[in-house]
Amino acid sequence: MSEVRRSRSAAEGDAYRDPSAMDAASDVTRAALAAGRNPRRWGAWYVAEHRFRVMRSYTGTVVVAGIGSPLLYLYALGVGLATIVDGSVGAEPVGGVSYLVFVAPALLASAAVTVAGEEFTYPIMLGYKWNPTFSGMHAAPIRPQQVADGVILSVAVRMLVNAVLFFALMLVFGAVPAATGFLAIASAVLTGLAFGAVLMAYTSTLEEDTGQLAMVMRFVVLPMTLFSGTFFPLTVFPIWLQPIGWISPLWHGTELARVFTYGYPEPIWLTVVHVAYLVAMFAVGWVWARRIAVRRLRK
């Protein structure tokens, strides 16, 4: 403490002694301008570092959930449920592949959405309100936009780790016939972020959680997981119900992942639409989340 302080006053002392030095105020100002450089450039990364440190305290859960739940889902649905799906209908039921191959990319994309559901809800409420670490960051030289960026960055990394683990297990189960399969990792992360950024923006607007987050889980996340062509193709629904799937980022993400993992036949323009839709949704959510961050932190 005293060590550090001495070093600075020494520097100032030199400036005073030197008659040609600029006056003290502009010296101080210059010091401030210099010290602001790093946070301006790397602030988002510093925020992400903080999130990683927090996540480290639940590494156990992240790893066990990261390996355990894909294992359980792939086995229960891709093997167990597949027995009765593949067995009951004589003709190839779903897109000409086994049920395992059909359902695995959907489970991968849903896993990313699940991470989004965890990381962009309570941790956001926590940061803004319950344990206002975001105000703490903002009181340091971090800008509100960087707080939003940093949180998104850290979650993207966690999603990537989860998706890679998931994908490795898919390979073990033999659920990835196509060589382009690894691209499904990227599409899963994109899916998770597209939905997650919007969710984060929404959560950021909440001053108080009086059950809104539970409602989002129940009426958005759950139906999305169930009705996005995940466990059965959207086409089993009558045509007038299918638009429900089209607005769902998970449907776009799932279809995209299927194209990559087993060459699901769809026109190329549709593939482009999937990517464009997810990118656009992410962009909207991101910009919105940054705006709210500025509004909330700069009150």
Partner: peptide, 9 residues
């Protein structure tokens, strides 16, 4: 939804 694929069990 899934029932249309599975039929009876």
């Amino acid at each position: 939804g899934l029932g249309t694929l599975v039929g009876d069990v």
